[in-house]
Design a protein around this nucleic acid. Structure first.
Lengths: 252, 252
DNA sequence: CCGTTTCTTGCATGATCGTGCAAAACATGC
DNA sequence: GCATGTTTTGCACGATCATGCAAGAAACGG
């Protein structure tokens, strides 16, 4: 095993998980912890990660903001949803991706060799895509909402109006068959509506706790959903309702 | 076995696996490791691979290093500059901050209890400020440039035109008394010009290696600089020139 | 406060590297 | 065929690098 190779794998895991453990890396590579620590020290010196007791965390200028989310509770479920969701992507497509932790997971799951054009109003999604060489990234600016991690406002809407996308990954929303897709913020809902209008199909990846819930601001009807990516634990009755509205169900 | 033939096989394996081991190649070709090393050295000289201890790895074809990969340079000096630069800030001010690792350091150095309005086209700066509760953050969207970490384009300019700022922190530029402030990218220069036009004062925090250098695209004359934050090692003659142009010098 | 884990530092060891040199293989001209 | 010059290859040497181990320091958790 080459030193270089090991350090690359560390970078990869850091990009995927946001953190690494010294002991775990040592056993995975079959080297002593000292060697791993040396690698971590070098990478830290190069600014590629931040050393912490027991391992290291991503320091990549942006990543820090998303760390707390990656250690949240439903991380595993969201990562599974993300892996299933990226399988819907085809090379050369244009995407809208809005905010939410699930969408950030999807952005992180996009493989390095996929050629895409992505427009997003989420800082977390943008940060995840910034280093992918084959992704043309368009940031949709505007007033930043700290709660949601997204940008909203007139500028955002104007920028969206000039773009079109094949798929729109819609996140951080309530999802109910009769009430449709609903958002938690009025300005955020406006942005989602604009994105929906300028895209050919809506994709929603939802953890089970989001199904059959609703928020104050309506974005679109349930029939607007083209692809619905859900966990295996999702209640079949609810899924059947969405399916009747025209959604294609994908299990993670 | 011909030399050419061997080197072609090395290229092939590199394309397939991404790495090769010197010892393994030697036994596979039935030649000494010295010969293999010679081959590797030649290929490395031709830029077809990158030599590492124990073998070689594929040279990154996406060689245009993104900003997050370059972030490890002169971290200490930049942090010192950043601490000095934030002392120029007063509560309630509006700022433009553009890209560059120094500006990212400045953004990270802004204290949590400072109330500010910040508009930035840099993802790194935005990520650093996203968590500060008292900072009203406006993201200036547009086409994202991976090597600079900033957004540029017509949308960016339009958004800037609607804003005004007390101070403009201008980064990633060349700095020369006679040639003025210069940028490395044409679109990036346009953005800087727009920000300069809509702000009351320009602040530049520059490591010593940026002083007395110039880039292709002109942004503004040296006399536009209001505050210049430099290291203690900065050559006094150059500083005096800037001072004569009206800049206030601050040492980190 | 103490025990445990993790980290850094210094050091010994083995692997790998570059260089100089000589032998072998090869091409070239007569 | 033979002599000469060039290229390639293998080997020996000292230098460099990566790794693991040990000892002391620091950080963590109770």
């Amino acid at each position: 095993m080459l030193t270089e190779e090991r350090q690359q794998l560390i970078r990869d895991q850091l990009a995927a998980d946001g953190k690494v453990l010294a002991g775990e890396l040592a056993s995975r590579f079959g080297v002593s912890e000292d060697t791993v620590r040396r690698d971590l020290r070098e990478l830290a010196k190069a600014g590629q990660l931040r050393r912490v007791y027991g391992g290291a965390v991503a320091s990549a200028p942006f990543a820090a903001a998303t760390i707390s989310q990656r250690s949240g509770h439903a991380v595993e479920a969201k990562a599974r949803l993300a892996r299933a969701a990226v399988m819907l992507l085809e090379a050369g497509q244009s995407l809208f991706i809005d905010g939410g932790t699930t969408n950030e997971a999807i952005a992180r799951a996009i493989p390095r060799d996929k050629e895409l054009t992505v427009a997003t109003n989420s800082l977390g999604v943008a940060a995840a895509l910034a280093d992918l060489p084959l992704v043309k990234l368009i940031v949709l600016g505007g007033r930043y909402l700290p709660d949601l991690g997204t940008c909203v406002g007139g500028d955002t809407l104007a920028a969206i109006a000039q773009l079109g996308a094949d798929l729109f990954f819609l996140g951080s929303c309530g999802l109910d068959v009769s009430r449709g897709i609903t958002a938690f913020d009025s300005a955020e809902a406006e942005v989602k509506r604009a994105m929906a209008q300028n895209s050919a199909g809506i994709v929603i990846a939802a953890t089970s706790d989001k199904l059959a819930t609703a928020a104050p601001y309506r974005v679109a009807g349930s029939d607007a959903i083209r692809h619905l990516v859900v966990e295996k634990t999702a209640p079949a009755a609810v899924l059947a309702d969405f399916q009747r509205q025209g959604a294609e169900i994908h299990f993670a």
